[in-house]
């Protein structure tokens, strides 16, 4: 049984004019445990909405999102929150670190709602990522690359089965982005976590076990616009 299985997943929004606008219509998708899969998609292809539906942040209109045997879409919100806190790690496009909390506290927050805060584990993880000297720093005192590593540590802190990454290198220059993706792969493999990353940058997709085109996967996705040569 795959770690993640999506069937007949659909999500729509109400537009300002009152009409419904379908952004997600995914007939089927599966991800095996420990696999690293990239979904390539342009703006408007439903990348973030798909990840939010997988994470249980959004409730789909219909369909199933089964993670480790648990159908997230069928759970009440409180249980979705608990399941997310236990099984999933999330790396956001803008890192979404909490500015009022130290580096260590940000990582502890990644565990707090799941297995519980473990300072030794959080510290070890940050040291592994080269942030051992920045535990008491606040995010604003770090470089963008360092913030990215804190976000990665937070996503992995509670030993998730699956890490979702939403354009995690959008704020980085190409070299730093490549290094961050390599680090993401290494860290997820070290923790034994599966990785599902969405990105619109083809140059970052090397190193994944599989790369899929989201516009092909999502029947509601807007047609891709070719970039000028």
């Amino acid at each position: 049984m795959p770690l993640l299985q999506i069937d007949q997943l659909a999500k729509s929004y109400r537009a300002p004019d009152g009409t419904r606008h379908e952004v997600l219509d995914v007939p089927h998708f599966a991800l095996e445990a420990g696999r690293h899969v990239a979904l390539r998609g342009t703006s408007g292809s439903g990348k973030t909405t798909l990840l939010h539906c997988i994470a249980g942040i959004l409730a789909p209109d219909r369909g199933r999102v089964v993670i480790d045997g648990i159908d997230m879409a069928a759970l009440p919100e409180a249980r979705r929150d608990r399941t997310r806190a236990a099984l999933l790690g999330y790396v956001f496009q803008t890192f979404n670190l909490l500015q009022g909390f130290t580096v260590l506290e940000n990582v502890l927050l990644g565990m707090a709602f799941g297995p519980g805060a473990d300072t030794a584990r959080a510290t070890a993880l940050l040291e592994t990522l080269g942030l051992g000297g920045k535990l008491r720093h606040f995010p604003r005192q770090l470089s963008t690359g360092q913030q990215q590593r804190v976000a990665l540590a937070r996503a992995l802190a509670h030993r998730p089965r699956l890490v979702l990454a939403d354009e995690p290198t959008a704020s980085l220059d190409p070299a730093a982005a490549r290094a961050a993706i390599d680090l993401l792969h290494a860290a997820c493999r070290a923790e034994g976590a599966a990785l599902l990353m969405v990105s619109h940058s083809p140059e970052l997709l090397a190193g994944f076990d599989e790369t899929l085109d989201l516009t092909a996967l999502n029947r509601a996705a807007a047609p891709a616009v070719s970039a000028a040569p």
């Binding site: 994470a55 942040i57 919100e77 409180a78 929150d81 608990r82 997310r84 806190a85 236990a86 999330y90 956001f92 979404n96 909490l98 500015q99 009022g100 927050l109 990644g110 707090a112 709602f113 799941g114 937070r154």
Partner: peptide, 16 residues
């Protein structure tokens, strides 16, 4: 608002 949303995304419940 965003911080609270992040906490929720990390698994914090509405009650929390």
């Amino acid at each position: 608002r965003r911080d609270i949303a992040i906490l929720r995304a990390l698994g914090a419940r509405r009650a929390t």
